[in-house]
């Protein structure tokens, strides 16, 4: 894996968010956990960037570090001209109205003792109009937009709603400040398939309606492909591959991406399964990650160079928007 390098960064697009050399480390017994180790990416206005990878790859940490929850160890995060990592705490607090987050577990992310009316109005009570009637007007508009009847929900508590409805309510709460960027951290992982489809369709509709820019973090590659314009694949704190999403799934260039795609169970009995029983792999520790390419310990193509040199992002020759950080890419790259 991967890699550093900046070949995949945007030069022409209307960039809303630029992340540069983001590093997040946590102190731990026995050393430092390298959760995110120097990743850079841009998100154009109105675009959805999908972040995928296995648990521990740093995708959630990346999303949270953009919001400074917690603060990045180093690197910069530019949103509309401000470097979020340099803002004072007060300035960051004000800036957070432009950035919102939707979490995985919809039920625990809503305060169980507040009514739905209060939960969704909370951001407005701090930053919005002071008049409660005005606040309720905005809240009810937003609840309507996410398919919740505002008059029914207003005085109810979160436990009276299903997981899918609670996720709709958290989305309404995130949208009520009219943010520019929403970070969705596994927003549909806890939901049943039938409800998941409703929420994904709704996110697409809301994105169009409000001109949202989304970071969509998930482990389910089919879900990410469905919703994202561009997808970044992460492994052990590094970025392996960034590509327009249809292109990524059609022509994976990184051996890790190919492994991920090959592991997805396909709901079609006619698709043959590679049923070789492999031994359990020892995953490398984020405290002491492998030298060079971090994926080399699991990579079937690894050679000497992978151990000594970290691969740089390079453009895939056949595509406008496809970049890979690998010494042995699966498709031809621009040298």
């Amino acid at each position: 894996m991967a890699g550093t390098g900046k070949a995949h960064l945007r030069t022409d697009a209307d960039v809303l968010l630029s992340v540069r050399d983001l590093v997040v480390e946590f102190p731990a017994r026995g050393g430092v956990v390298h959760a995110v180790s120097g990743i850079s990416f841009d998100i154009a206005r109105g675009e959805t960037l999908g972040l995928v990878g296995e648990s521990g790859c740093g995708k959630s940490t990346t999303g949270k570090a953009i919001l400074r929850l917690p603060k990045a160890t180093s690197g910069s995060v530019q949103l509309g001209g401000d470097d979020l990592t340099q803002l004072s705490n007060d300035a960051m607090r004000a800036k957070r109205t432009d950035l919102q987050m939707i979490f995985q577990d919809p039920i625990s992310s809503l305060n169980p003792r507040r009514t739905i009316g209060e939960v969704v109005a909370e951001p407005l009570r701090v930053w919005g109009p002071k008049d409660e009637g005005e606040q309720w007007k905005l809240v009810s508009q937003m609840l309507n937009a996410v398919g919740i009847d505002p008059d029914v929900a207003r005085h109810k508590h979160p436990h009276e709603f299903s997981g899918g409805q609670c996720q709709r309510i958290s989305i309404a709460r995130a949208l009520v400040m009219e943010p520019e960027l929403i970070i969705c951290d596994e927003p549909v992982s806890a939901l049943d398939v039938s409800v998941q489809a409703q929420i994904l369709n709704m996110l697409e509709a809301l994105k169009k309606k409000y001109g949202l820019t989304l970071v969509f973090i998930a482990h389910d590659l089919a879900v990410v492909k469905n919703i994202s314009d561009r997808v970044a694949v992460m492994y052990l704190g590094k970025m392996c591959e960034v590509s327009e999403s249809d292109e990524l799934y059609a022509n994976p260039a990184h051996p890790y991406t190919r492994l991920l795609l090959g592991s997805i169970p396909v709901p079609d009995p006619l698709v043959a399964i590679d049923d070789e029983v492999a031994a359990e792999e020892e995953l490398p520790s984020p405290i002491n990650p492998p030298s060079g390419c971090r994926f080399r310990t699991r990579c079937p193509l690894a050679s000497e160079i992978c151990e000594v040199a970290e691969p740089q992002m390079r453009a895939v020759a056949s595509s406008e928007d496809h970049f890979v950080a690998c010494h042995h890419p699966l498709v031809e790259v621009v040298p």
Binding site: A197, A222, S228
Partner: peptide
């Protein structure tokens, strides 16, 4: 209702 890998991005899902 399941998102399919072989479909292009932004394919509308058939929710129940």
């Amino acid at each position: 209702a399941i998102p399919k890998l072989e479909r292009p991005k932004h394919t509308r899902l058939d929710a129940i």
